[in-house]
């Protein structure tokens, strides 16, 4: 049995809500950047960047994607890649899918934020195929592999452990990979961890949680940053 099947020990401190993981990531994004947000927690990042000089790309073929559309603003021809109705902004452009992926693979995307099933000690990402679903080598890849390979910086937004309490940050991924050595930063509901050539560096913890607590729910060795501090939101 792999180490990932082991139940991790969780601290008593309640974890961050998904929206707060998204807020921490939004605070990390620099003005003037082009960003692509994946399905799930990453999509929530868009709630925290209103008024900032950040341009969201949606791989369906839209640049400068606006906020979610409601009521009369809903248009079936205007959706993001998470299939949500969205609004247009001044400066929005539309294009075909081949151009969209030229942007992504061609290195134009400053940041991609994706969810993950597992991240390894060397920054490998497994995010598209949970073997428990029992579909073998086929699954919903979508744009994840292109984004993982093409984005200049890849931030992972995820819960620290699975709903069953198993580690998601592991020595080596046991699930099918999205891409090798592609992850730069992992933001979870307990911590912020950077992937460095030396290994995983624990940079931030949520208030009330110690580095030891984080290590106890992580199945890969963590290097404690010299400036380890509480996550500010």
């Amino acid at each position: 049995m792999s180490i990932t099947a082991k139940k991790m020990i969780l601290p008593e401190t309640p974890p961050l809500e998904r929206e707060m993981i998204a807020l921490r990531i939004a605070n990390m994004l620099q003005d003037g950047s082009y960003v692509n947000l994946g399905i799930g927690i990453p999509t929530l990042v868009s709630n925290w960047i209103e008024g900032r000089d950040i341009i969201l790309q949606s791989e369906i073929g839209m640049l400068k994607t606006g906020p979610l559309a409601e009521g009369e603003l809903i248009d079936q021809d205007r959706i993001n890649a998470s299939c949500q109705y969205v609004c247009e902004l001044p400066g929005t452009s539309y294009f075909n899918i081949e151009t969209s992926f030229a942007m992504i693979r061609g290195g134009r995307m400053d940041v991609a934020v994706l969810g993950a099933l597992q991240v390894s000690a060397t920054g490998d990402l497994a995010g598209w195929n949970n073997p428990a679903r029992g579909l073998g080598n086929v699954g919903n890849i979508g744009g994840s592999m292109d984004l993982a390979v093409g984005a200049r910086k890849l931030i992972i937004a995820m819960e620290h452990v699975t709903t069953g309490g198993e580690a998601k940050i592991v020595e080596k991924c046991t699930y099918p990979l999205t891409a090798r050595a592609c992850v730069d930063v992992i933001v979870t509901n307990y911590a912020l961890i950077e992937v460095t050539p030396k290994g995983l560096v624990l940079k931030e913890t949520i208030p009330g949680v110690t580095a030891e607590d984080i290590q106890n729910m992580t199945a890969a060795p963590l290097i404690i940053a010299e400036d380890l501090h509480e996550m500010e939101l």
């Binding site: 992926f101 992504i104 029992g134 699954g139 919903n140 890849i141 979508g142 744009g143 592999m145 292109d146």
Partner: peptide, 22 residues
């Protein structure tokens, strides 16, 4: 149908899927 094996399925990453047709 895929689980039963009556339909075969081939999956490509989205950018690759588009570029194969381009």
């Amino acid at each position: 149908a895929v689980r039963k094996g009556t339909i075969a399925v081939e999956v490509y990453p989205m950018g690759t899927f588009a570029e194969k047709m381009r």
